[in-house]
Structures are given as structure tokens and as C-alpha cells.
């Protein structure tokens, strides 16, 4: 006994969503992390709190609001409809957007920590060596904070793989479109297909264990860089 076609479809779908989400999060999360690490603005607190909200909110709450926002009468839904994209609820991209928000803190915080640990000095040195802001970001910040970025990518990916509540609210349970591993496992249990559920669940346990082992090993070697996440 192994994975059924439906299981494989769920695995593939989960992998796609998690990969796209991770890439989007690195692109969106990096400027947010940079800003949070460097700013003295009074908005630092509130913005930091918004980013961290998914850490404490029940996923169903986040999913509920996203469902409303992306629905036909919600602000996001109206924009997407006006653009001719229809509503994003119960679609692949709707799930990606939800995942981006849901996994945001797991990407922003390690990057922010790594950049804060670097301090201003390396960038000042780069500036005295004729490097402009973009130049020094790519040649100094990025390589020096690399452990933070790697931790961020791994945690963002793994956390997206593990989501359930948000998916159920926003994406529902459409095979190949929104039925990710966690939902597939739920289905197996509902239909008493315990051995199928074992296969998928065991895979998830091993996957999560491997990921966390990598992150912890990495952070132990790089403690100085401040890339730790404080899990």
C-alpha cells in the first residue's frame, strides 16, 4: 500500500503552493523585514504586530476574514472582479494569497532578526567603500544575513505545508485545486481510511522533523549571525 493518485495530487499541489508562497514571501517579506529592522518610526510597533498576528490568531479567524475580503462583496473580491479575474475564493491563487499572509511572520522575523544582528556598521563600511544602497544590500546585507534568509525560506515553506484551518475556510476541498495534504488527511480520517491517513501523516512527521533538524543545526553553527528564530 502506498499513495493513491489523489494523495499524490495533494502532495504535488501542496508542494506547488508552498514553493510559490515561499518565493512571494521572500520578495514581499524582505523589504518589510528591512524596514522593521532599521526604522525608528512610531509605526514599527503596529506594523510588527500585524505581521505577527498569524502567530497567535486561530487560522480559522484569518481564513474567515480572508473569505469575506476575497468574496464577491469584499474589497479584494471587488478588485479582482473588476479586473476580470473573478473571485479568488476556492481557487489556487486565493490559497496562495492566504498562505502568504498566514506564513508571513515565519519569513519576516528570521530575516529581521538577522539584519538587526548585523547592525548598521557593515553598511556604513560599504558606503565608505563607494557602495550605494542597492549595491550594499546585495553585496553585504544579503551574504552576511544569509543564514536568516535560509531559515526564513525553510520555515515559510514548512509552515505553508502544514496549514489547515485557513485552507479549509478560503480554499475548501477541491481535488487538484485546493485539496492540500492536511485536508486530504482529514478526508481519509472522515472516511475511516486510516492506513491512507497513516501514510500521509507519517510523511508529514518525517518532513517536519527533517526540516526542523536542518534549521536547528544551521542555527547552532551560525549562532553569531543572529539568524535564530527562537523556536
Amino acid at each position: 500500500m502506498g499513495f493513491s493518485d489523489a494523495d499524490l495530487a495533494a502532495l504535488w499541489l501542496t508542494f506547488r503552493i508552498a514553493s510559490i508562497t515561499t518565493i512571494l514571501l521572500l520578495i514581499i517579506g524582505t523589504p518589510i523585514a528591512l524596514w522593521l529592522a532599521r526604522t525608528n518610526s512610531r509605526w514599527k510597533g503596529p506594523i510588527g504586530a500585524i505581521v505577527a498576528l498569524p502567530l497567535v490568531l486561530p487560522p480559522t479567524v484569518l481564513g474567515f476574514y480572508l473569505l469575506i475580503a476575497m468574496g464577491p462583496n469584499g474589497p479584494i473580491g471587488q478588485i479582482t472582479t473588476a479586473l476580470g479575474l473573478g473571485t479568488l475564493t476556492f481557487t489556487f491563487w486565493g490559497l496562495v494569497i492566504a498562505s502568504v499572509l498566514y506564513s508571513m511572520p515565519f519569513v519576516v522575523q528570521p530575516i529581521q532578526n538577522a539584519i538587526e544582528a548585523l547592525g548598521e556598521r557593515p553598511l556604513e563600511v560599504a558606503a565608505t567603500l563607494r557602495a550605494g544602497p542597492w549595491d550594499s544590500f546585495f553585496t553585504v546585507t544579503l551574504p552576511l544575513a544569509r543564514p536568516g534568509f535560509i531559515t526564513a525560506a525553510i520555515l515559510g515553506f514548512a509552515h505553508t505545508v502544514g496549514e489547515f484551518g485557513v485552507v479549509l475556510m478560503v480554499g475548501g476541498n477541491i481535488p487538484g485545486v485546493t485539496r492540500v495534504i492536511s485536508v486530504q488527511i482529514y478526508d481519509h480520517v472522515e472516511t475511516m481510511a486510516y492506513s491512507q491517513a497513516h501514510w500521509l501523516s507519517g510523511t508529514m512527521v518525517i518532513f517536519s522533523f527533517v526540516v526542523l533538524t536542518i534549521v536547528y543545526t544551521f542555527n547552532r553553527d551560525r549562532k553569531k549571525s543572529g539568524a535564530g528564530y527562537g523556536l
Partner: peptide, 20 residues
Amino acid sequence: LPTYKRPIGYVFQESSLFEH
């Protein structure tokens, strides 16, 4: 004129070499 456009050399008090 931002620092990176000033024709200066700057030596910081403590070591400022890029460790990477």
C-alpha cells in the same frame, strides 16, 4: 552628498573588515 559619493577613505575604530 551621500557617503558613497564622497571621495573619502574611512577607518573605523574597531575592525570593520567584511567577514564574508
